[in-house]
Nucleic acid binder design. Sequence first.
DNA 1: ACTAGACAAACGAACGTTCGTTGGTTTAAT
DNA 2: ATTAAACCAACGAACGTTCGTTTGTCTAGT
Lengths: 191, 191
Amino acid sequence: MVTTRNTRGDVVRAAGKLFAEKGYHGTSMRDLGKELGLLGSSLYSHVDSKQDLLVSVVEEGATLFESSARAALEAPGGPELRLQALIAGHVDVVLDNMDVSRTFLNEARMLDHSHRSRVLEARDHYEAAFREIIGEGVAAGAFRSDADPKLEAIFILSILNSLERWYQPTGLLDRGGLVDRLTGFAMHGLT
Amino acid sequence: MVTTRNTRGDVVRAAGKLFAEKGYHGTSMRDLGKELGLLGSSLYSHVDSKQDLLVSVVEEGATLFESSARAALEAPGGPELRLQALIAGHVDVVLDNMDVSRTFLNEARMLDHSHRSRVLEARDHYEAAFREIIGEGVAAGAFRSDADPKLEAIFILSILNSLERWYQPTGLLDRGGLVDRLTGFAMHGLT
DNA sequence: ACTAGACAAACGAACGTTCGTTGGTTTAAT
DNA sequence: ATTAAACCAACGAACGTTCGTTTGTCTAGT
């Protein structure tokens, strides 16, 4: 067996996995070392502290979602198409980075105050992309005139952010079908 | 100041609060004691173990949601009305038991295997109530014929289970308005 | 081609602290 | 007088982290 040495990237990746699975406080540095075939103390060759690891993982999540939103906002098309692009982008980020996404969504509140407020800012900025497109749709008459962009954005993001709790890539529903179902529900609900 | 003695109920209630705030692993028995003006060790007059506390809180959550679903299923009316009843019941449970709900939703996975599988069962049973009513709506022609009850139930529950992450009882949107918005979105989406 | 130096990665022991929990004793209400 | 509730001291284990040392791999200078 060919065993290569570990890099900081490997440690952050493993941290994302364990933080996603067992939570930040439920993961010890020794757990994390074991995941990589190392002692807990060896991780400090790559990392300043445990909190530092959480910052790296969450920060990566924030970046992923922000650049996904930016791409969707710059895409051409009407509000419906752009909303679908936003949803598809979100699905891609979550499914391609499950551990990072889960940690970003569930463990960011374990960050100390300064880092946490930066993340809340990033999250609100991401949410604003949804508000914006929904607002455009209302203004253009494509969506219900009494729709509240702020509230509907929260509803749609609630669904998207819950994907990690139930979606199985190996299941019957593939990625494209999922995006279609999500977009359809966001547009028309049950009727 | 009149200080009365604490009961097991007080301890479980405080545990719900701290577990909701800081997570199960982020809460120590000494934290919990401090919350009640006690030493950590004093809690063992009321409780067998820390895990025992989590079981009590989560179990209470499961009971609350299950009895809410039972009531809504027994209510009269067509699928739309019954779905609204289901949603209103969920909102009541969450807003009247915020700490228990948050712990039930986020910390149940920290339970040991046997207790956790019992909770998953309860959760699936609760979800089945949504599937059932949506299925009725489809059969009765009240909802889209190509709606997938399993998937739509997940979508609606995703929104409901995210309430704890953003809803503020002191905000502009009161409970009745919230239920209306939720039901409207579930029925018609953005259009 | 050979070797000495530099350097990052990992080890292993130990640190001070906190953890969940126990057992024995005191307090206060019934 | 009984009893539940709370205190207090202490336990062993686990925690995050530090430190000095060892390992292996590149890099320069000969």
